[in-house]
Nucleic acid binder design. Structure first.
Length: 449
RNA sequence: GUGGCCAUAGCUCAAUGGCAGAGCGUCUGACUGUGGAUCAGAAGGUUGCGGGUUCGACACCCGUUGGCCACCCCA
C-alpha cells in the first residue's frame, strides 16, 4: 500500500468551489460588461512569457517575486506572468497593424511569489483595461470614469479614487535635491502619509536620507530633516494652489497641467468630485508609470487598494523603435470579492447553485417518464438535474434541499398515468400538480414572483 | 524578506507530562409517495511533518512545512 499523498495546494493559492465560483462569475461578469460598454475588446495572452519579456520592467523589488516556469529540457527561459500590462505592451509591439487607439481588456490570473495574507495571494485575477495610442488626458479620464462606473455597478458606496502624477513626484525629488539613489526611499516614505501622518513621514524620510547604506551622497541630519520637511510640504494641498517653488519646476508644471485637464474631463464625464481625490502623496510601486497614476481604496474594511493604474508612455520603447502612449487600470478581483463578502453586497438573485429544478425518479419503471420531463425542461431553457439513482424520494428531496435547488418534480405512478407531474417548491413546501407540458411555464412563472 | 500568534476527526474546539474526547456535519435505521425536526446506532485520528527530552509526549525543547496578523510591498 503506497503512502497517501496529503491533498493540498501550493502556498498562497486556493481552490474556488462552485458556490464561491458563482459569486466570482457575477463580479467578473459585471466588470466585463462595463469594460465592453466603454468599448474595450477582449484579449488573451499566454500564462507563460519569455523571461526576458518580463525582466527590467517592474523594478528590482517586484522582479524578485516573478516565478520561473522552466521545463527540464526546455531551451527557452520562461516565467509566469506578473501582470497583464507588460504582455499587452509585448502584443502591441508584435502587431503594429492593430488599429489605434487600441482598447483592450483582459481578465486573467497573474502570479507573484509574495508572502500570502488577507487579500494577498500568489495567484490572483487581474481585470485590466488599457488604452493604447492616445496621449490625451481624456483617455486617462475615461479610465477613471470607468473605474467609478465599475464600483458603482457592483454596489460600492464608500470608495475614492486617488489621482497623482509621476511627473510631480519626480519634480519633488529634483526640487528637494534628494540624491537619485534615495528617490525610492523618498517615494516609499511619502506613500505612507495617510498611514503614519506628516510627522511620521518626516521622521522616516530623515532616517532614510541619513542612512549610511545609501552611499556617498548621504546627507547630514540637519540637511536631511530640512529636505524631509520640504518634501512633505510639497505634497500638501494648499487651498487653491500648489507651492510656488514646486510649481515653477517645468516637469511639475506639466504634471499639474495634466491633473487640471483630467479634472476638467472628469467633470465633463460626470464623476462626482467626492469620489476623486488629488493626492500628491500617492505613489504606485511599479516602475513603468510616467504620467497620471490612480488608485482606488475603500474606507470600511482595511484591505489595500482595489484597483490601481496609470499612464506608461515609455514602456513600449523597451520592445520597439516605435513608441506608443498607453494608460490603463487593473482591478483586483479577489480583493473586491473579499470586501463584497465581508459587506454581503451580492444581489439575492445569485443562488447557491445553477440548478433550477431536480427531476426525481420514483422507481426504475418510471425512469423513462422522468427523463422525458427533464429533456423537456432543458429544451425550455431551465437548468435541470435528473436524479441518477432511484433512491427513496426522501433522499432525493434531501439532496435538493442540501444543494438549495428551488424546485423538485415528482412523477409517480399516478402522475405518469395522467401525463402530469407534481411540482414542489422546496422553500415553501407548496405542491401543485401540473400537466407535463406545462411544467416549464409553471417554473418560469414562479421564479418571477 | 522581517517579526508575532497558531496547527488535535470533514468543521469548531476540549484533554495537570499518564486510556485522544465533545458539539456540529456525514452515513444507516425508526420512515417502501415527500427535505430541514426528533430519537437510536455507526463510521471517521500515525494529534501537520522530522528529530530530541522523558519510564511515559497532543502537551516540554529544536527544526521544518502550512495558516493567520503586523511590517515591507502590492491587486
Amino acid at each position: 500500500m503506497p503512502l497517501k499523498i496529503q491533498p493540498r495546494v501550493p502556498r498562497g493559492m486556493r481552490d474556488i468551489l462552485p458556490q464561491q465560483m458563482l459569486l466570482r462569475q457575477y463580479v467578473i461578469g459585471e466588470v466585463e460588461k462595463v469594460f465592453q460598454r466603454f468599448g474595450f475588446e477582449p484579449l488573451q495572452t499566454p500564462v507563460l512569457e519569455l523571461r526576458e519579456t518580463l525582466m527590467g520592467k517592474y523594478g528590482p523589488d517586484a522582479e524578485k517575486l516573478i516565478y520561473d516556469a522552466q521545463h527540464r529540457e526546455g531551451k527557452e527561459e520562461l516565467s509566469l506572468r506578473y501582470d497583464v500590462t507588460v504582455p499587452l505592451t509585448r502584443v502591441v509591439a508584435m502587431y503594429p497593424e492593430l488599429v489605434k487607439p487600441f482598447k483592450r481588456y483582459q481578465i486573467a490570473p497573474v502570479f507573484r511569489a509574495e508572502r500570502p495574507q488577507k487579500g494577498r495571494y500568489r495567484e490572483f485575477y487581474q481585470c485590466d483595461a488599457d488604452i493604447v495610442g492616445s496621449k490625451s488626458m481624456l483617455a486617462d479620464a475615461e479610465i477613471v470614469t470607468m473605474i467609478y462606473t465599475v464600483f458603482k455597478q457592483l454596489g460600492f458606496k464608500s470608495f475614492v479614487t486617488k489621482i497623482n502624477n509621476r511627473k510631480i513626484l519626480t519634480a519633488i525629488g529634483e526640487r528637494t535635491g534628494v540624491p537619485p539613489e534615495s528617490l525610492g526611499a523618498l517615494y516609499r516614505s511619502i506613500d505612507k502619509m495617510d498611514k503614519i501622518g506628516q510627522e511620521g513621514v518626516v521622521d522616516e524620510l530623515t532616517k532614510a536620507l541619513t542612512d549610511e547604506r545609501l552611499g556617498n551622497k548621504r546627507l547630514s541630519l540637519a540637511e536631511a530633516k530640512k529636505t524631509a520637511e520640504q518634501t512633505v510640504s510639497f505634497t500638501r494641498l494648499y487651498d487653491g494652489g500648489w507651492p510656488e517653488l514646486l510649481r515653477s519646476h517645468p516637469l511639475a508644471q506639466q504634471g499639474f497641467d495634466e491633473l487640471d485637464q483630467m479634472r476638467k474631463f472628469l467633470d465633463d464625464t460626470g464623476v462626482p468630485v467626492s469620489y476623486i481625490e488629488i493626492d500628491l502623496s500617492m505613489v504606485r510601486g511599479l516602475a513603468y508609470y510616467t504620467g497620471p497614476i490612480f488608485e482606488t481604496v475603500v474606507t470600511e474594511p482595511k484591505i489595500g487598494s482595489l484597483s490601481g493604474g496609470g499612464r506608461y508612455d515609455e514602456l513600449m520603447g523597451l520592445f520597439s523603435n516605435q513608441s506608443l502612449p498607453m494608460t490603463g487600470t487593473s482591478f483586483g478581483i479577489e480583493r473586491i470579492i473579499d470586501v463584497m463578502d465581508e459587506l454581503t453586497m451580492y444581489p439575492a438573485s445569485i443562488g447557491k447553485t445553477v440548478t433550477q429544478a431536480l427531476v426525481t425518479v420514483f422507481n426504475r419503471d418510471l425512469i423513462g417518464a422522468s427523463v422525458r420531463v427533464a429533456n423537456a425542461l432543458r429544451a425550455a431553457g431551465i437548468n435541470t438535474e435528473l436524479a441518477l439513482d432511484a433512491d427513496g424520494l426522501g433522499k432525493q428531496l434531501k439532496y435538493a434541499a442540501a444543494k438549495s435547488i428551488p424546485y423538485a418534480i415528482i412523477i409517480g405512478p399516478d402522475e405518469a398515468a395522467a401525463q402530469k407531474a407534481t411540482l414542489r417548491d422546496l422553500s415553501s413546501g407548496e405542491q401543485t400538480v401540473v400537466a407535463e407540458s406545462e411544467i416549464a411555464e409553471a417554473i418560469k412563472l414562479k421564479a418571477q414572483s
